[in-house]
């Protein structure tokens, strides 16, 4: 029971990690997904622009409060064998939401998972490089305090 739950958890985490990479990808980086999917993909939910209410916490650690909204576009597609993929991405790009749904469906289908992973590998590398660069640039602005030596008199 625990083992099964763990497998399903780790599978869900891997799916979430894929979604996270897709959410940061550009349209150009995802363009190869259409060729992977072929023509038989059904649109379950045409891309739709809407809002999510972004929540914060009182004091950062307390009860939730509503900070403000963000635009989100969502879509859903089904592969011929019935696998359903969902796309939710920040912003108002309908094509990106559709591609995100496609990525989710193709990643869940065993036959195409490796191809999706291969397509996302350069995306992940780019994100990692950009994150590292941001961190290094921030680190260069870190203050190094030093204490002046006190005289005796």
């Amino acid at each position: 029971m625990t083992a099964i739950a763990n497998v399903s958890d780790s599978s869900q985490n891997a799916r979430k990690a894929t979604m996270a990479a897709v959410s940061r990808a550009t349209i150009a980086e995802l363009a190869g997904l259409d060729a992977l999917a072929g023509d038989a993909v059904r649109v379950l939910r045409a891309p739709e622009i809407g809002l999510v209410m972004v929540r914060g916490r009182v004091g950062g650690d307390g009860a939730p409060f509503n900070l403000g909204e963000a635009t989100v576009t969502r879509a859903a597609v089904a592969l011929p064998d019935g696998v359903i993929g969902f796309g939710h991405v920040l912003g108002r790009d309908k094509d990106k939401a559709r591609l995100a749904a496609l990525a989710d469906a193709l990643w869940q289908a065993p036959a195409t998972r490796d191809a999706v992973e291969a397509l996302l590998r350069p995306v992940r590398e780019r994100i990692a490089a950009e994150t590292a660069l941001k961190r290094e640039r921030a680190a260069a602005t870190r203050v190094d305090f030093f204490t002046m030596v006190r005289g005796d008199n």
Partner: peptide, 23 residues
Amino acid sequence: FRTTLPRFGATDPIDTAAMQVAR
């Protein structure tokens, strides 16, 4: 503009302790 859009729901509260800090 926001009044023209449907709301899909609310996010989980953001975790500012896990922030990728720029400053």
